[in-house]
Structure formats: structure tokens, C-alpha cells
Design a protein around this nucleic acid. Structure first.
Length: 415
RNA sequence: GUGGGCGUAGCUCAAUGGUAGAGCACCGGCCUGUGGCGCCGGACGUUGCGGGUUCGAUCCCCGUCGUCCACCCCA
């Protein structure tokens, strides 16, 4: 037997309805908030992510499905959406057509990691990006969309955390302060932290080693070292969120693992996801468009893990299939007529099914029951002779004769 | 990449060093043209794969693959 590749999954009927529910709400929200859909390729040049996501990130260093194609080009399956969105924005000069571009996309992402709860090698993201708007109101709008997604899906016990990581002007000062405060304690931290101190001191806040926590708890906070514009921006974001009535808390430890973030960062954390508790995460990336060869336009966005949304969905989300009819045929001549009825119903827009194997009426009705058919249309020699069918209401267990010519109308009114 | 748990019927799981069983699901009968409930019957397994120990392995050992959880990282 050939099985699916490790870390990839088939989404089967019964499960896929929950996905469709999530996707439906996401699209509906984008409609309401004025976001347009964009679809970008699953494969990109490797350098897009080396430059975009950041050479130092784990995603680029060890998690990309990168390979050389038959033309000798370095290609990768996309590990995240943002660089692709930026590339498309730059490549098509969307700053002209869409000066204030509000875009969304959904699709598979790929990271070579060890699978666990809420983490697959092929996973799916709902991704939202805005280009060209720097007002803190847009930060709040993007966060509002993210929060509305979670609440409209009925995900309980979700928590919104925000932070500001500053900009290239003020972050060096914060890094300095961080290292100064660390001082003699630095050698006491874990190996990962020692490396972070050199590459990206901010990410010391990501550390979960228990022994390091007392030291990290005493470190200065990024928000206290923001430059004037960044501080004003962050205050604006918070007051807009308050105006929207969205509950937030500041997490000084929310620094995120991608290099491009500036100013606002945020995550929504869930309860039912095991160790992978981030349902969605994002932030502002004001230098990224320019870095990828585009105009100097700001950006902000987030990505939500669809698997994680589905995991966090309440059990009670059961998608009820539309009412349907089931055609039952008894014998050869009735079967031909039954097939015509089946097609008439479908052409008329009525979901209808039929058992094609010549089985007993009992078996056919059992099948009708299995597919939760609301109506059975029974066609046998008796009905054929009278120019009728028997219309059985499966829920009420009542049935009546209906003229052959009026079958579609009778079914439509009885469903 | 590291650590641990688990791989037995389609699904959920039992069992024993002497060649496997239940519940659900499936098919049929009771009901010769009437589903759900009930009763009766049927079909279904190279016990993940490879090797080793043993007279004999589903069980013990080694390897491998898969899976789950955690670290790491992140959606």
C-alpha cells in the first residue's frame, strides 16, 4: 500500500465540512472588511524566502522543502504566505491599481518539521495582508478581522496578545539595553539564548527553559524603548482596539520568529491545541516591500492556521447536509423511469440519489435512510401502470401517490 | 534534529510464549413492495515490515517504517 507522505493528511468527508465552515466564515469576513482574494503559486524561488522571511530564521535554515528543478533553478515549496503576497504586490505594481491593497489568500504551506498536534508538514493558512496604510487604525482593523474570525467560529477561551517590537530606529537601543541588563547573567542562560544574544537578542524572550525564566523576567520591555513615532503608533493601536471593544493584553514576550516584523505584533492563543497554542499570528512589516525590490510601502498582516482553527472549533459545529430525495426502483422497466426521474430532480436543482444495483426495496430504503434522505420516490410496476410514483416522507413515515407528471413539483414542496 | 508512548478487522479496542476476539460499521434473513429499533446469521486479519531468540512469537529482543505526544519552532 502506498500511503500519504509523513506530515500530510487526507481531509475526508465528515471532516471536510468543518474546513468548509471555517473557509466560509473567513471569506465572508473578508467580504465585509473589504479584502480581495489573491492566489499565488505554491512554488517560489528559494531566495524569496531567504530574503523575505529572513536568512536567520528556522523556517529558512532548516524547514524549507527546497530543491533544484530540471532547469537548474533553486525552488522551494512556500513555507509561509507573506513573502509571496509581497512579491505579487511588487511584481504587478499593485501600488497603482490598489494604492491601499487589502488582500487575502488561502492555501497549503510546507515546512519540514516533526509532526505533532497542530503541526503538519503540509498545513493550510488563511492569510491577510494590507499594503500602503500606516495609520494605526489599519492595525486595529486587521486585528479586528482576526479576532472576529475566532469569535464567529465560536472558538471559546481564545486570548489576544499584542506587543510592539519597534522599528530599525529604536530597536538597536533596545537590544543594547537588553544586553546591558543581562550583563553577567548571560553565561547562565541556555545555549539557545547565548546564540540569540548574538543574532537577534529580542528572541531571548522566546526561551522556555525554566532555569532562564527568573533572569528573563527582569529584562527590560521593548515597549519602554520605543521611539516617539513607534510609541504613538502603539498607543493608537490600543485605543482603536478599545474603541472596537476587543479585549487585549500586552505580552512583552511576544516577539515572533520572523525577521521582518516592525512595530505591532499580535497573536491569538487557543486552549485546546496542545503545545502549539497559537491559532493565528502576525504583525506589521514596514520595510519588507522595499527589501523585496518594491516601492517603500508599509505592510501589516497575519496568518491563521486552518488546521488549528478546525481543532479549536467547538464539537457542536455539525454541518447539516441539505435535504435530499432518494429514488427507489423495483424491476427493470421501473428502473428506466426512475433514472429519468432522478435526472429531472437534479436538473431542477434538487439533491437526489439512487441505488444503481438492483437490490431489494428494503436495501434501497435502508440506503435512503443512511444518506438521510427526506423523501423516497418509489417506482414499481404498479406505479408505472397507473402513471404514478409513491412519494414516501422518510421522516414522518407517511406516503402517498403522486402523478408522474408532478413528481418534481411534489418533491420540491415536500422537501 | 532530540526524547518518550503506541502500531491487532473499515473504526474503537481486548487477549495469550501454543497459529486471535468484542462492540460499532458492512452484507443477508426474520418482513415474497417499505428504512430507523430488535433478534438471528454472514463476510472481514499475512497481528506495520524485516531479522533474531524459541520446538513454537501477535506477545520477548534488535532494526526499520509509520503514528501520537513533548522539546525545538511556529499557523
Amino acid at each position: 500500500m502506498i500511503s500519504a507522505i509523513r506530515g500530510t493528511h487526507d481531509i475526508l468527508p465528515g471532516e471536510v465540512e468543518r474546513w468548509q465552515f471555517v473557509e466560509r466564515i473567513a471569506r465572508s469576513l473578508c467580504d465585509r472588511y473589504g479584502f480581495a482574494e489573491i492566489r499565488t503559486p505554491v512554488i517560489e524561488k528559494e531566495e524569496l524566502f531567504a530574503k523575505g522571511s529572513g536568512e536567520s530564521t528556522d523556517i529558512v535554515q532548516k524547514e524549507m522543502y527546497a530543491f533544484t528543478d530540471k532547469g537548474g533553478e533553486r525552488i522551494t515549496l512556500r513555507p509561509e504566505a507573506t513573502p509571496s503576497m509581497v512579491r505579487a504586490y511588487v511584481e504587478h505594481s499593485l501600488e497603482h491599481a490598489l494604492p491601499f491593497a487589502k488582500l487575502f489568500s488561502m492555501g497549503p504551506m510546507f515546512r519540514y518539521e516533526r509532526p505533532q498536534k497542530g503541526r503538519q508538514r503540509q498545513f493550510h493558512q488563511f492569510d491577510v495582508e494590507v499594503f500602503g496604510i500606516s495609520d494605526p487604525a489599519i492595525d486595529a482593523e486587521v486585528i479586528d478581522l482576526a479576532w472576529s474570525l475566532v469569535t464567529e467560529l465560536g472558538i471559546a477561551q481564545a486570548e489576544l496578545v499584542i506587543n510592539s517590537v519597534g522599528c530599525p530606529d529604536c530597536r538597536p537601543k533596545f537590544h543594547e539595553a537588553l544586553l546591558a541588563a543581562l550583563g553577567d547573567d548571560l553565561p547562565k542562560l541556555c545555549g539557545d539564548c547565548q546564540r540569540r544574544a548574538v543574532i537577534n537578542p529580542l528572541r531571548i524572550y522566546d526561551c522556555k527553559v525554566p532555569a532562564d525564566q527568573p533572569i528573563i523576567d527582569k529584562l527590560p520591555h521593548a515597549v519602554d524603548y520605543l521611539c516617539e513615532p513607534c510609541a504613538t503608533h502603539f498607543t493608537g493601536v490600543r485605543s482603536h482596539l478599545d474603541a472596537f471593544g476587543i479585549p487585549w493584553t500586552i505580552s512583552h514576550r511576544l516577539v515572533r520568529g520572523l525577521d521582518y516584523y516592525t512595530r505591532t505584533t499580535f497573536e491569538v492563543l487557543g486552549q485546546t491545541l496542545g503545545a502549539q497554542n497559537a491559532i493565528l499570528g502576525g504583525g506589521r512589516y514596514d520595510g519588507l516591500v522595499k527589501k523585496l525590490g518594491g516601492p517603500d510601502r508599509v505592510g501589516i498582516g497575519f496568518a491563521a492556521g486552518i488546521e488549528r482553527l478546525v481543532l479549536a472549533l467547538p464539537e457542536s459545529v455539525k454541518v447539516v447536509p441539505p435535504a435530499r430525495a432518494f429514488v427507489v426502483a423495483l424491476g427493470e422497466a421501473p428502473r428506466t423511469e426512475a433514472l429519468r426521474i432522478l435526472r429531472e430532480l437534479r436538473v431542477a436543482g434538487i439533491p437526489a440519489e439512487m441505488e444503481f444495483e438492483a437490490r431489494s426495496m428494503k436495501a434501497q430504503l435502508k440506503r435512503a435512510d443512511r444518506v438521510q434522505a427526506a423523501l423516497a420516490i418509489i417506482v414499481g410496476d404498479d406505479e408505472l401502470a397507473r402513471g404514478e410514483v409513491t412519494l414516501r416522507d422518510m421522516r414522518k413515515s407517511e406516503q402517498r401517490a403522486v402523478a408522474r407528471a408532478h413528481v418534481v413539483e411534489a418533491v420540491r414542496t415536500s422537501l
